[in-house]
Design a protein around this nucleic acid. Structure first.
Lengths: 294, 294
DNA sequence: TGAATAGTGTCTATCAGACATTATGTC
DNA sequence: GACATAATGTCTGATAGACACTATTCA
């Protein structure tokens, strides 16, 4: 910031319109679980360029008026229908990284600060002011990554009576998924999404943020389904159970049990809430990381 | 990026000077080891604001002409005296995060994309075009963090004949350290530095990048001194030795041994170079992480 | 010769993963 | 009653940390 710039830049700093501008936007990779399947929030662009293409929700940072974090929260709120006080408070939002190739936007040099959000199952998205549509899209329909052992979709809170979980309408995302066409995302949003997914996979290893995908109270099986959906791997139920309960501060028991057992029988699971740990120690490492080491 | 913005913003995108601008800069947290002590590259500001204060090296991104990564490499090269081809090639440079509070620069809204660099011992810094000075400063003189078990400075390559290591003049950083005054850094650079240090401490747990602080060939003891300097902890020499050699792809033997033993005796250490691993598995976790978990 | 250092060996507690088992529900 | 599920127990191999020990080199 203006330390070390040449004389021209120095003057420019006091006459901000005198130099070629760079626009600053925020884009949000918002992830959630719906019926045990990882979804990402996308909007359909209503204007050129990339009109009609799917893109990450985002927009310009309001110069001089908001921080990057607040801009990201604002953009996310506009597409999810949550106000920034209620509802959005339970969404985890963290900075992912910045993307600033000069030609990433055909109009001008745009630096985008990308954010990553973990959300519990939210009501259906609604398009913001000028987007043609907003939709939660299954990540698997977009990212053709080789998931070695894709976890089958798991039933989630529909196994439990309504009311234990937070919000979450039962409405499914569009029957015909918007991106089954395989259309790539606008701009470099495909790369941003890929980075966000990798960050998410890594983040839940070392932090308790997998609970951010769930309601206030959840069962161990529901927590496991988060890991399975994000990692795309099935996990051993028994070992997972023992392991997460042994991590100090990850989850704490509420003392209550689910109102009923599984859909096809079984005992009623105990309910937990997120603990006070900010880091998991020991961590829950993804199985078979050796493959991606080199 | 321009998906979802209102009509005003949309038009503004085609007339870039029509809206309040946000300047984009890059700032670099460049770390190196000198005589076994972690140093950060700082410049003394030659102009207002914060004239005379120490700051991270950085400057404006050239709109439409360079990516963020290239801007960071350029700024780093200007202060280190390395050209971007030779020398800088052995420096690890990664994005750290972006800082965009509206009031972080008193002149205007400036979004800074911070980078983190790991460098082998480099020649003395030289001030760039308009900075009053550039200096490698011991991190400990700036960051009053409670290091529970500060590792004593270790002799490094001066124990070995010149020529085995890469560059690195023997000149010491200023006898009177520039920031012994305890002056805080300009802007929010103190916070950026703190984030960079934490990233560095975490990074060497899971990646082999500790080797980026060393020359092409190094001994296990030198590698250990990197961990001790970055973590601020002494490590058990024997366990460290066995552990890093057991991590596949971390280091590979050159077959050679150091020309002479330690300064005060001892056998000649075997020499290693960086291996082909991109991730350490298993990781080298910092001891006693439990304290910082909550 | 003394001391410091490189490198290896040993022991123990802990942990991950595979698998088994019991209890408890639903259909 | 059949079956699925929650939760716990058992076993084994791998690993981290503490510590001991030997060999090698310099002052």
């Amino acid at each position: 910031m203006a330390d070390r710039q040449g004389e021209d830049d120095f003057l420019a700093a006091y006459d901000p319109r005198a130099f070629d501008p760079i626009a600053v936007t925020v884009d949000v990779v918002a992830l959630t679980l719906r019926q045990g399947v990882l979804h990402v929030l996308l909007v359909r662009r209503g204007a050129q360029p990339f009109e009609g293409a799917w893109a990450l929700p985002g927009g310009f940072v309001r110069a001089g008026r908001e921080s990057l974090d607040r801009a990201a929260a604002r953009e996310l709120a506009e597409e999810t229908g949550l106000d920034e006080e209620r509802g959005l408070g339970r969404v985890h939002l963290e900075q992912l990284g910045s993307y600033g190739a000069p030609d990433r936007d055909p109009r001008m040099h745009v630096v985008s600060v990308a954010y990553l959000a973990f959300a519990p199952d939210l009501p259906e998205a609604r398009a913001g002011s000028d987007a043609a549509a907003a939709e939660w899209v299954p990540v698997a329909s977009l990212a053709p990554e080789g998931n070695p052992d894709p976890a089958p979709p798991r039933p989630m809170e529909q196994d439990r009576p309504a009311g234990i979980h937070g919000g979450g309408s039962g409405r499914r995302s569009a029957e015909v998924l918007p991106s089954d066409t395989g259309t790539p995302l606008a701009f470099d949003h495909g790369a941003i999404l890929a980075d966000g997914l990798e960050r998410a996979r890594s983040k839940i290893e070392y932090s308790p943020l997998a609970t951010a995908f769930l309601g206030e109270e959840f069962t161990v099986t529901e927590l496991r389904s988060v890991y399975e959906a994000v990692w795309g791997r099935t996990l051993h139920a028994g070992n997972f159970h023992r392991k997460i309960l042994s991590v100090p501060g990850f989850v704490e028991s509420t003392g209550a049990t689910a109102a009923r057992g599984g859909a096809k029988g079984g005992p009623r699971a105990r309910l937990y809430r997120a603990g006070d740990a900010r880091l998991l120690h020991p961590a829950l490492l993804r199985p078979d990381r050796e493959e991606s080491v080199r």
